[in-house]
Design a protein around this nucleic acid. Structure first.
Lengths: 126, 126
DNA sequence: GCGGTAGTTCGACTTTATTCGTACCGAGGT
DNA sequence: ACCTCGGTACGAATAAAGTCGAACTACCGC
């Protein structure tokens, strides 16, 4: 899950009037093993699935997810998802909003996001 | 990727005259996050992909893969794949042969194995 | 019985990931 | 000026994975 940071460029879809996206791997650079690694964590699956199911109009801040973790942990997980190429993050003033890179992922790994959308977390009660 | 070993039972397809399969999670117990975690490694992707593409008639020993790693490392990776539910392993006399649990995986995570079959390793040359 | 084969288990080590506190930044409101 | 909000960066502690040597098992052929 290590990244050659030098290959992290902007998004392939140039922003119309949107804030710039943070560094991310280009579509052709997406690595299946990195994407699977990023998705092999329940919290991160929760994030991506919630974005897929409840994507209303637009990107969401990381507070929107109502995840019960300290902020520095959330930064870590969102960054992991972005560096693997699962999420795109844009800086909207002081907020950083995330969306799933559905087009890129569907192009490179068709069917993968359907699995994420269909995922349900393990029941905590035994 | 931890397993409650007590839930590791035999395969759901009873063996006809085959050797018994090693403990593995039942189809209903397969966890997406565990499967993705098991597949988030290039060596393990190589193993599964090779099994998918070159599955001739039957299971394969772990020497068949021609992986340039010490035996104890291979044991480790095959076990990880089996405990995640990706592989089924049977003891044929002194050999342990592996196959992909295609039916179970297609039933639970349709499309996932297609992604593995389509995967190609990163070029080692820059 | 010896050596080869196919693989396990154990234990130690290294590497990588996760968790999270603390300190900090920058914009907006009062 | 100061506080709050939404977030980053650093760093340290801990947990989890990966790597691999060494010793071992079991079976087969000679």
């Amino acid at each position: 899950m290590s990244m050659t940071t030098s290959t992290m460029t902007g998004p392939d879809t140039p922003p119309a009037d949107l804030p710039p996206a943070l560094p991310e791997p280009a579509r052709e650079e997406l690595r299946l093993e990195a994407v699977l690694g990023a998705l092999s964590d329940p919290l991160r699956l929760t994030i991506v699935r919630k974005l897929l199911l409840e994507r209303e109009a637009y990107d969401h801040t990381c507070g929107w997810f109502e995840l019960d973790r300290p902020k520095s942990s959330l930064t870590h997980h969102f960054k992991a998802l972005r560096e693997a190429g699962v999420l795109r993050q844009r800086q909207y003033g002081l907020e950083r909003r995330s969306r799933v890179r559905t087009e890129d992922l569907d192009a490179r790994f068709p069917g993968l996001l359907d699995l994420v959308a269909a995922w349900e977390p393990a029941s905590s009660a035994g």
